[in-house]
C-alpha cells in the first residue's frame, strides 16, 4: 500500500487505535511479568510487535462479525474489547477467566464479542473459519469471518484445502496472515521456529486460488494499514468472496526463544520523540520497528494526538491493566469438581 494515496485519519479513529495498541502492549508486558513471577502455568505466546496490523483489521470489523485466532491471540482478544480482568484470569487458570480456566492462553474465546473457539492447532482454526464463512453465507447475512494465523500455518496442507473451498464457494472469510517472520531467528540459529517454506512471497499462495490479496507492509503507516484492512473487510462483506490479508511485522526479539523475555525493555513512549534513546543489543528494533512507538510518532506528526494526550492515555491503560492483573491474582481457582462440567451440552 502506498501511504500517499490514503485519506488522513480522523481523531476518533486515531484515539481508538492508540488505545487498542496500548492495551495490547501493556497487557502483554504484564503477562510476561506475571509469568516471571510464576503466576501463569503452562505455555503462552506474546503478541508484542504485531499490534499495528492486528489493530487495523480489528478496527475495520463490525460488532456482528465472527473472529477466530490462534495460539498467539491475546492481542486480538483484548484488542476486541474483552474484559482485561477475565482475560488475565484465564491466563492464570482462574475460575472467572474468559473460559473458566478451561482454555488458558491458547484457547481464548469470547462469543459475546464474536470470538469463536481458538484452536491452537496450526491450520485447524483456519478450517473452523471456513465453517463460519459457510454458516454466514448460508444465513445470507452481510457478515465476515476473520481468522488470524501465523506464517507457520502456510506449512500445513489444510490451509490450502480451505483456500480452495473458500474461493470455490465465494465464502466471506478474511484470511489474516500475521507474518512476523521478518528478522526472525530460525531454529538452527538458536531461535524459536521461524518460517520454513521455500515460498518467501506468501501472497502467491492465495493468488493461485484466485483469492484477492492485500498486503500491509511492516513499514506502512497506520493510515495506510487501516485503509488496506477496510478495503479487505469491505470486499469480503460485499459478497465478493474471500480475501487474504498479509499483515507484516518485524519479529520482536523477545520471542526468539521458547519462553519470551523482555529483551527490548518495557515500552517507553518518550522514545517516540527522543526524550530517551533505546539502548542495548535490540535498540534497532525499538527505534525502527516498535509498532507502538511508530504509531505515536505518526499521530503526533499528523496532529492527531499530542504527546500529553498519548502519555495520559498510556497512564490510564497502565492503571487498567494493573488493576485487571490484581483482580486475576485475587480471583479463586476453579473447584476441582468443575473439571467434569461441559463435556456435553
Amino acid at each position: 500500500m502506498s501511504s500517499n494515496s490514503n485519506p488522513p485519519l480522523d481523531k476518533s479513529t486515531a484515539q481508538r487505535m492508540a488505545e487498542r495498541m496500548l492495551v495490547m502492549r501493556r497487557f502483554e508486558e504484564k503477562t510476561l511479568d506475571l509469568f516471571q513471577r510464576k503466576l501463569i502455568p503452562g505455555m503462552y505466546h506474546l503478541y508484542i510487535g504485531q499490534e499495528a496490523g492486528g489493530s487495523a483489521v480489528l478496527d475495520a470489523l463490525g460488532s456482528e462479525d465472527s473472529l477466530l485466532t490462534n495460539h498467539r491471540g491475546h492481542g486480538h482478544v483484548v484488542g476486541r474489547g474483552s474484559d482485561l480482568g477475565r482475560s488475565f484470569s484465564e491466563l492464570l487458570g482462574k475460575a472467572n477467566g474468559l473460559t473458566g480456566g478451561r482454555g488458558g492462553s491458547v484457547h481464548m474465546c469470547d462469543p459475546e464479542r464474536g470470538f469463536l473457539i481458538s484452536s491452537a492447532i496450526l491450520g485447524s482454526n483456519i478450517s473452523l473459519a471456513l465453517g463460519a464463512g459457510y454458516a454466514i453465507k448460508r444465513s445470507g447475512e452481510k457478515k465476515v469471518a476473520v481468522v488470524f494465523f501465523g506464517d507457520a500455518s502456510l506449512e500445513e496442507g489444510i490451509t490450502f484445502e480451505v483456500m480452495n473451498i473458500a474461493a470455490m464457494r465465494k465464502l466471506p472469510v478474511l484470511f489474516a496472515l500475521e507474518n512476523n517472520n521478518l528478522g526472525a531467528i530460525a531454529l538452527h540459529e538458536g531461535g524459536y521456529s521461524a518460517s520454513n517454506s521455500v515460498l518467501k512471497q506468501f501472497t502467491r499462495i492465495p493468488e493461485l486460488f484466485g483469492v484477492k490479496t492485500v498486503q500491509l507492509l511492516a513499514g506502512d503507516t497506520l493510515a495506510s494499514k487501516i485503509a488496506g484492512a477496510r478495503e479487505a473487510v469491505d470486499y469480503c462483506r460485499a459478497g465478493n468472496g474471500p480475501v487474504f490479508c498479509e499483515l507484516q511485522s518485524v519479529h520482536w526479539p523477545g520471542s526468539n526463544m521458547v519462553f519470551a523475555q523482555m529483551l527490548t525493555g518495557v515500552m517507553d513512549l518518550g522514545m517516540a520523540w527522543g526524550e530517551r534513546e533505546p539502548q542495548g543489543e535490540h535498540a534497532g528494533w525499538v527505534r525502527d520497528h516498535d509498532p507502538v512507538l511508530r504509531m505515536a510518532r505518526e499521530f503526533i506528526a499528523a496532529g492527531l494526538m499530542s504527546r500529553d494526550e498519548l502519555l495520559a492515555l498510556d497512564r490510564k491503560v497502565c492503571e487498567e491493566v494493573e488493576c485487571a492483573a490484581q483482580f486475576a491474582i485475587d480471583s479463586p481457582l476453579p473447584e476441582p469438581q468443575s473439571a467434569y462440567h461441559h463435556v456435553f451440552a
Binding site: 477466530l68 478450517s127 459457510y134 480451505v162 480452495n164
Partner: peptide, 25 residues
C-alpha cells in the same frame, strides 16, 4: 448439498466451525 473437493480435513473443520454458528451440517 455441497459436493466438495477431496479435502477431508477442511470439510471436517468447516463442519465444526459452521455448527458453532448454529448450522446443522
Amino acid at each position: 448439498i455441497f459436493d466438495p473437493p477431496n479435502s477431508e480435513a477442511a470439510i471436517a473443520g468447516m463442519g465444526a466451525g459452521a455448527a458453532m454458528l448454529g448450522e446443522r451440517p
